[in-house]
């Protein structure tokens, strides 16, 4: 089965992002495909490469980057939600005249259409939020 996932909450504050990751891992282990993870609301904070958790804690951002690279998952951060919350890729940083960008490897910034498209193209869209 083709799964798409939506993550609506930020890392470390809320378990939604951990549950989404565990779900993706379990689905892949069972032979399913996870095509896209769409990060919305505070979920966009899953994609900042400036995240530095304590060493004895899980690294939520790197974990997404790794599973995406291994299983070809499209990690999409909503542009409107990201801009409100200070997440910029290189192009957007330039366009907005900012001096830095902060998107982690494997993530890309795109529009809300990617969420609707994921709903259309996957067999199931699973929402992890509050």
């Amino acid at each position: 089965m083709k799964f798409a996932i939506m993550v609506s909450e930020g890392p470390y504050t809320h378990q939604a992002t951990d549950s989404a990751y565990q779900f993706a891992k379990a689905a892949i282990a069972k032979g399913h495909e996870v095509t896209r993870v769409f990060f919305y609301h505070d979920g966009v904070n899953n994609g900042t490469r400036l995240t530095v958790p304590p060493q004895d804690d899980r690294h939520i951002v790197n974990r997404w980057s790794e599973i995406a690279a291994q299983h070809n998952i499209d990690l999409v951060i909503c542009i409107a939600a990201a801009q409100r919350r200070g997440l910029l890729d290189e192009n957007e940083a330039k366009r907005q005249g900012k001096d830095a960008d902060n998107i982690a490897p494997g993530f890309r910034i795109s529009g809300l259409g990617q969420l609707v498209e994921a709903g259309i193209q996957s067999d199931r869209l699973v929402v992890f939020g509050d």
Binding site: L112, L115, V116
Partner: peptide
């Protein structure tokens, strides 16, 4: 597609950002 709105309009951003998704969805003829 069903969008389920559960939160008050202000106090959290969910309602506002949810409505943004609804508007985008209109472009997909669903």
């Amino acid at each position: 597609f069903m969008f389920v709105n559960r939160k008050a309009p202000y106090g959290t951003v969910y309602a506002l950002e949810g409505l943004e998704v609804v508007l985008i969805s209109a472009a997909f003829d669903q």
